[in-house]
Design a binder for these strands. Structure first.
Length: 261
DNA sequence: ATGGTAGCACGGCTA
């Protein structure tokens, strides 16, 4: 047996409630990290999770952002919402401890364009995130930083790296920040298990799913003790292909069940 | 073609 962990930008829990319910029934993930709830905590459909025996923690925000972590048959402890000094009050980060692993569920700013003030905010968010990780976490301990990272670190992580050039998600300043996470001791856990052509996000605007123009911007970044337990990974294209799907596909990471070091 | 679609919420922002 293995544990199934999923990160999924659902693009509104209200619009995607049925899809999430179907996903829990069909796949019963042991841990589900959701981004872009686009609702306040008060509006979250708790029954959807409670009825299926999931422990749920949310960090919501009206209309934008919002993250939630759901665990089947396990508690979520030491819940901490928000990135200290880094998210400008936007609901983008939720830290919990699950089965002895610190799990940081994150929805990183998209940045809009390199010229936009939002790109400054994106870089500031990552600077603060990295500094906070370094100050308050230990890469020798079991840690997962997962979610919609909004950076495509490898040329194969966009449908056409030439066309992308240095635009947002592929700008050198962002690639350097992503590399800094790796240098600190995080590993891109799904990459060795995915074909380089597999992507996680397909924009509605350009009919990107229909045209096969995806990006890989959703990640499980894990420390060595977690990496040693990884037995597989996949991206659920069937979910992205459904009617009224989110623009992001669920990303699945499988861990062996063994005791945490 | 500085669009295209989707979500929130009912005009414009965000992605």
């Amino acid at each position: 047996m293995s544990l199934k962990l999923v990160t999924w930008n659902i693009n509104s829990l209200r619009a995607r409630a049925d899809h999430v319910a179907w996903y829990l029934d069909e796949h019963r993930p042991d841990l589900l990290l959701m981004q872009e709830l686009k609702m306040e905590d008060e509006a979250v459909p708790w029954d959807l999770f409670e009825d299926r025996e999931y422990w749920l923690e949310t960090h919501g925000q009206k209309a934008y952002n919002g993250v939630a972590t759901a665990a089947f048959d396990a508690e979520l402890d030491d819940v901490h919402a928000g990135l200290p000094g880094g998210d400008d009050g936007q609901a983008r980060l939720l830290a919990t401890t699950w089965r002895g692993i610190r799990v940081i569920n994150v929805y990183c700013p998209q940045g809009q364009s390199v010229e936009s003030p939002k790109f400054e905010h994106k870089r500031r968010f990552f600077r603060t995130l990295i500094d906070w990780l370094k100050a308050a976490h230990d890469p020798s301990q079991p840690l997962i930083v997962a979610g919609d990272i909004n950076i495509a670190p490898e040329p194969t992580d966009v449908w056409d790296a030439e066309e992308f050039g240095d635009s947002v998600t592929r700008h050198p300043a962002e690639l350097a920040l992503f590399q800094e996470l790796l240098d600190w001791g995080l590993h891109d856990a799904t990459r060795p298990h995915l074909d380089p052509a597999v992507h996680t996000f397909f924009d509605y605007r350009t009919m990107a799913w229909e045209r096969g123009r995806g990006m890989r911007i959703d990640f499980f970044l894990v420390t060595a003790p977690v990496l040693a337990r990884v037995v597989g990974a996949s991206v659920d294209y069937a979910e992205r292909d459904k009617d009224k799907a989110s623009d992001h596909a669920p990303v699945v990471l499988e861990l062996s069940e063994g005791d945490s070091p």
